[in-house]
Amino acid sequence: MTALEKLPLRPIDFEHDVIQRRPETDQAGLAAPAATAPTPGILAGDDNIVFASLTALVNWARSRSPWPLGYGLACCAIEMMATAASHHDLSRFGAEVFRSSPRQADVMIVAGTVTHKMAPRLRRLYEQMPEPKWVIAMGNCASSGGEFWDSYATLQGVDTIVPVDVYVPGCPPRPEALTEGVLRLREKIAKGG
């Protein structure tokens, strides 16, 4: 018997147990929900007692509301606005509070082409953000240079100047794609990444 079976405790999946789990999709459309993804380091009993290490609990709390920096650069910024606006409503996932100041933000969504002139400013904004901080590279331009791969004026991927956690491909990515990127980032934060 493992230690887990001796105790009346089971791994808790907050998405499944506390919040309703989002439907999984594959290429064919809506698929059956995958097996539960337990939040690492958190166990719960049936009588509402939760055992967790402080790190796991803090990571879980952080992952639930990443506040992005309102930092639109180009075309992707319009889709970022569409993601935050009424139809796609990013606030369902706690990430709709776009802060105008980097000192209040957790996630930098680099939405658009980064030019050589913009790169030092972007790096400075990243350094002004408090720890812990994450970066989502939204769109092909921010991920790898995209269709401006041979332009003399653009940076070939924002990961050359800041560490990127999630890449969202597309030109521009659909709002659903950005939402998926935010959800992937949540999973990463919950795992302590």
Partner: peptide
């Protein structure tokens, strides 16, 4: 100039049909 991506120069490197895609990016709204 913070968003200068060199679209006019890229027009000269692409074929006529490929350039349509870059004209999109000028006023992306």
């Amino acid at each position: 100039g913070y968003l200068h991506r060199g679209i006019e120069k890229i027009f000269e490197w692409r074929t006529y049909t490929q350039g349509i895609r870059y004209a999109d990016q000028a006023d992306y709204v």
